[in-house]
Design a protein around this nucleic acid. Structure first.
Lengths: 154, 154
DNA sequence: ATCCGAATTGAAAAGGATTTTCAGTTAGAT
DNA sequence: ATCTAACTGAAAATCCTTTTCAATTCGGAT
């Protein structure tokens, strides 16, 4: 099993890449590392301000850019107007199960689309190089919650 | 084989839904129906203006909203800042092969993700309701073009 | 511990995409 | 031909994101 992503490992990597570990960046990191929900820059800013109210939204944007560049966070694909980010917990290629109720994201690594890609290449001549895949639905917790409410009403 | 999407079928459907068929909407429709590339509102506007220079960008946005609501066009998921739209040619559930070189989109209908969804439900308890899947790569035409250029250089 | 330079910061401004407002125009039913 | 609700373009407003710039700060060298 590969070691889990911790604040220490991330800060070490950033330092190694020559980035300064400012107060502001630490706050952004803390928010991202402790969350399993995908969050917009604005939402991250809101949470960061509870740790350190002086941090500006612009700095959040800049930190997200660095973290994306370093491969430490992923952009989640949704239909929303604003972007959403998430700590990259799996090391390699992976996708997300996104709960539409609570925003929680579950990662999975084995998408197994090679067979489909091969079939499509044969049918259309298209050579695929990359793909976006995200699942939306209801996480186990929210299903339980819904079931409980259902019982209460009965 | 189901009948192909034509301007006539689309205008009939819109009229049936109570929408007026204005000069401007006809121009937007003509641009969308004759294109196999995904296009941003701004790109569509640019093409519409070659048909009718008086049509405003706002009207393009409004028309796209109507067409999306009527299920006649799809939003294509890319990492770009601006949205992209495409005529919905297949009737039901489908996905896109998007050429990163020329923008051309090839549709396919059989994504076959049910097995994956079932496996993920068993592993994580997540009940999936919907998904985004888009492939990016190089279409057969652009592959040929690239091959030709390669020969020329040799 | 202090100093220094380059990196980083916040605030304001700019930029770009999309939506809203509003007064004037038009499609299409009568 | 008339009428009215739907539609339009232009301008303004709204969001989200990026750029600019003067002031601050991290962290290596001293």
């Amino acid at each position: 099993m590969s070691p889990s992503i911790t604040l220490e490992r991330i800060t070490a990597l950033l330092r190694q890449k020559g980035y300064k570990l400012t107060r502001q960046r630490r706050a952004v990191l803390q928010v991202i590392v402790t969350s399993h929900d995908h969050m917009t820059p604005s939402k991250i800013h809101e949470k960061v301000q509870k740790i350190d109210p002086s941090v500006g939204l612009v700095t959040v944007y800049r930190t997200l850019e660095i973290l994306t560049g370093a491969g430490l966070i992923c952009r989640v694909h949704t239909d929303r107007t604003s972007r959403s980010y998430l700590l990259r917990r799996p090391h390699g290629h992976h996708h997300h199960l996104i709960c539409s109720d609570c925003g929680r994201v579950v990662d999975f690594t084995d998408c197994n689309l090679h067979r489909l890609e091969k079939r499509l290449a044969a049918e259309t001549g298209f050579r695929t190089e990359d793909h976006i895949l995200e699942f939306f639905g209801c996480c186990s917790l929210c299903q339980e919650t819904a079931a409980t409410k259902e019982e209460d009403r009965a």
